[in-house]
Nucleic acid binder design. Structure first.
Lengths: 200, 200
DNA sequence: TCAAATTATGGTCAAAATGACTATTAGTAC
DNA sequence: GTACTAATAGTCATTTTGACCATAATTTGA
């Protein structure tokens, strides 16, 4: 979220946003505004949906098209700019009170993510190119908000035939090194054709 | 689709649409325009997403928020009006060439529906209030495009505890009458909280 | 050098779910 | 009454799941 430096929400933490220019696509506007306000660029933004209730914004009628992304915060440094005086990552459970309907947008987005992550392997965006099975498991435990059995998780993943062994091992760990795997989008797409289902 | 009676797409079949008024929500605008152009009202419209590429519309910059619904065509009679000179249902495979980016909107919507129908029980919108298990099964066979085993289908549905028995039977059929069931949205919503999964 | 700690990886087993069937029942049509 | 149709119920081998337990490989530090 960013701390707004202008307008009626000045001084409050809220979602980064701004006006769409006449000669840019809404996707481009989202990327531009994200970069201008937070310094974050080169990430894949996906449209959530449009929010168009009346009185969302007190001064005049505003329709917002919201976007989301799935990233590892530590991969991006935040540099507030433009209409933002500060930018910070918040735990979804500890988001401060927001102006406008930003709470509704956040809730809708989080619900959408939770649903999406169960039916598509988008979680892989959050992992390095090469990862361990435990790394993958911990990621999904965080997203799903519940512990998973290590052995059963491994069995299920392996049977999906989705992971490509790197024939390499972890390094610099103070315990037995785990095998590294990578995710092959091509294999995933091929499996999708046969009604493959990604459930964990 | 409706045959446009005005503007640069005059005479062409396209999706019904129009301008959002300043003092109505986008959901209300969708309902109003659908009714004005096709005469169809009182159906649950759900937002697909916003389409905001440049040059979607030749004359000026236009952003569209698309909506969809799941209905039985025979339940609604079409009465073209407002900017539409005609209104007609088309088989998704036989949609005529459309102006603007309406093809893209249709494709995105159809893909969205195919995905959604596998993970949420929206198929119930297509059935009468009271339906038989075979009716439900035949619907899903059509949507999924594959035959399902009658006995196994029944077992699976019953275990979901999703259907409410009407304590009534079919009438006017030339064979043994089947029990009628109805779908209870409240039960479904309650099940959703517990990570209930609707898979057939 | 050896025990403790830590995580990887593999296995067991009962319970539950699935898929492919078969059997029986209830009602209509002739 | 018999043929027909679909409803409903049950069987059974196979697969999947969930909750465990066991062992292997490595590092740390006493």
């Amino acid at each position: 979220m960013v701390k707004h430096a202008e307008g009626i929400s000045k001084g409050k933490w809220a979602l980064p946003g701004g006006w769409i220019n006449y000669n840019e696509s809404i996707d481009d506007a989202a990327s531009r505004l994200l970069k201008a306000l937070t310094g974050v660029s080169n990430i894949y933004l996906e449209q959530l949906r449009a929010f168009g209730d009346l009185n969302r914004y007190p001064e005049r009628r505003v329709i917002t098209v919201a976007y989301f992304a799935l990233v590892k915060p530590e991969n991006y440094s935040l540099h507030p700019g433009f209409t933002a005086s500060d930018a910070k990552w918040f735990d979804i459970q500890r988001v401060p009170k927001t102006p406008y309907d930003h709470k509704e947008i956040l809730d809708f987005g989080f619900a959408h993510l939770k649903h999406k992550v169960r039916h598509e392997p988008i979680g892989f965006n959050l992992l390095p190119q090469k990862f361990t099975l435990l790394g993958l498991q911990e990621l999904y435990e965080a997203i799903l908000g519940k512990p998973l059995d290590k052995s059963n998780f491994r069995r299920k993943l392996m049977k999906m035939n989705l992971l490509v062994p790197c024939k390499e091992k972890q390094k610099d760990v103070s315990h037995r090194a785990a095998a590294l795997y990578s995710f092959d989008k091509k294999i995933y797409d091929r499996l999708l054709k046969d009604e493959f289902n990604f459930e964990l």
